[in-house]
């Protein structure tokens, strides 16, 4: 059961089913958590989100690329404790500009069409997170790690 393919499939299902993720950045050692609308690539190598450039999260990740992001399927019910899956990704974040930006935004808007006006603003940054590792929690306390070789 605990094979890489199985875990990758669970990750894809989770990322498809969820719109929002919690992003963790820091400012000189002070952790800061914020909510972002994200999309993950099929091969799980990248996670994209958008943010106004005026935000704390953007300032923080511009200063230090190291971030973590958490996606989970909880529904605020007692059942969450055994049913929900939670995934933390740890890696580096960077802003994407130029032609690549438009190309990726198409994928992004396919999942979040209502954000079209938002992303088209010149003050909105597209950020790419490249995870090194995923940490998947299920059945309340079972934790598996998935490490990505560069």
């Amino acid at each position: 059961m605990e094979q890489p393919e199985y875990i990758q499939q669970r990750l894809r299902e989770l990322f498809d089913s969820q719109n929002l993720a919690v992003l963790a950045t820091h400012n000189i050692g002070q952790p800061y958590a914020s909510l972002v609308a994200f999309v993950a690539t099929e091969d799980l190598r990248h996670i994209y989100f958008v943010t106004p450039k005026t935000t704390r999260k953007f300032a923080n990740l511009s200063k230090d690329h190291r971030v973590a992001i958490l996606v989970n399927s909880s529904t605020n019910q007692a059942e969450d404790f055994h049913r929900a899956i939670s995934v933390t990704a740890v890696g580096n974040a960077e802003e994407i500009t130029g032609a690549q930006r438009n190309q990726i935004l198409k994928q992004y808007l396919a999942k979040h069409p209502h954000l079209e006006d938002f992303v088209k603003s010149p003050t909105c940054a597209l950020v790419r997170l490249t995870p090194r590792s995923y940490y998947m929690v299920k059945n309340f306390q079972t934790v598996m790690e998935l490490h990505i070789n560069p």
């Binding site: 605990e2 094979q3 890489p4 929690v137 309340f140 079972t142 790690e145 490490h147 990505i148 070789n149």
Partner: peptide
């Protein structure tokens, strides 16, 4: 035993 190639899994917490 199977060796993952691009992706390697490791247990962290087992219940």
């Amino acid at each position: 035993k199977k060796q993952g190639q691009t992706f390697q899994i490791k247990p962290r917490q087992l219940i």
